[in-house]
Design a binder for these strands. Sequence first.
DNA 1: TTTTGAGTTGTTCGA
DNA 2: GTCGAACAACTCAAA
Length: 484
Amino acid sequence: MSNAPTLVWFRTDLRLADNPALRRAAERGAPLVCLYILDEGGDRRPPGGASRWWLHQSLAALAQDLARHSVTLHLLRGDPARIVPDLARRCGAGLVVWNRRYGAAERALDGALKNDLKAGGVAAESFNSHLLREPWQVKGAATGQPYKVFTPYWKASLALGAFEAPLPAPGGLTGWAGDVGGLPLDALGLLPTRPDWAGGLRATWTPGEAGARARLAAFLDRDIRGYAERRDMPAESVTSRLSPHLAFGEIGPRQIVQALAFARSAGDTPASERDEAKFLSELGWREFAYHVLFSHPALAREPMNPRFAAFPWHEDAGALAAWQRGRTGYPLVDAGMRELWQTGTMHNRVRMVVASFLIKHLGIDWRAGEAWFWDTLVDADPASNPFSWQWVAGCGADAAPYYRIFNPMLQGLKFDSAGAYVRRFVPELAALPDEHIHAPWQAPAGVLARAGVRLGQTYPRPIVEHGAARDRAMADYWASAEAT
DNA sequence: TTTTGAGTTGTTCGA
DNA sequence: GTCGAACAACTCAAA
């Protein structure tokens, strides 16, 4: 067997366990050249600010984990289409391995690269680390076409049988001794400097494979209790908070499914069967987003429904800025946007509310919101993010037959009835009584005064009136229908 | 091809 | 205040 080194190219799979590419490299036996490339070339979407912060931490963790095996993680920056073949040649690689990505530009690059390498006499192999099923594995029984509705998709995926078991972390790794000319982590410039806005992120998250494992354990041991009932309540901490770990591949969905099954068979999880099925179906939504991305490569740019191609969006920089900063005057919306800014995440229910507000109440193009989330979310995901924005906008894979407009006050009443979430992130309203916490402009003057709230000064008045905004959204919707 | 049943997440109105 | 039906009523997937 050849002792020519194996080049392991890490991308969104920053872990040792359940990593098929790394496993393949380990089994081959030759020394490893492990690398990560900060891709700043071509038409691939660069990571947003919050993702860059996370990436820095995650690379540091991966480098440390590899170092325990005496393997170096080499860091490079530039265009992988040039760097990978170049490096393969310089170190005389006998094999290049990676785990698949599913965005159009990434697929194009990986495909071209594979051809390049093979043309140069270097074998290249790719694997699935990221998904329970490859996007093309699930097809309509009658049509053979990709699905556009979640429920039949998920039923079909489950009907294909048990998901594959995760792979254990490989042992017996050896690093290649030659010089690659990598950069120190700090040289990638991933951390914010002036100002350092990452304090809230540091306080909220533990990036890295070990952090992901700990989060999963805490979720299954404790937080998952009552998941089916309480996952919609933003003040509760029942959600898994695994999404950034999944986005960077610090943990894989197969590991999560297996851990869930183990916890069930050992009887040491507080989850009911309903809780488990509900959580599993959330993983299913992630899968579905990738399934849809694969069949709609322009998901982040073009509405799936052509009816929306010429939608009369409103340009309103002031309203967009108010939304981004959490200054719309609608407490639940503002709480969500501030949670996002402070912590790099936002509760799922609130994501729907703030997205609906931007699109429907302010009439602003969903792509502006998608871009803001891409920049500020630590779990910004090339499939889930555009998929979900299209879902809320009504131009994506949603089976609802009507144009859905969330009422931010009603959503607050239903899912944050005691106002605990609003009070946490909009402290200037904290002293308001529950019955006014979601609509301070409707509170009597005396109540506002006693709570120390001066509308227009300590907290904004609503930037749009709900009823009028709703009417305008409906009018725009019907106008777009006539235009097509 | 045509038909039929069904679809994560809502809101509003009127009894 | 609560409940059920109507609402801007469509599109997908399977038979």
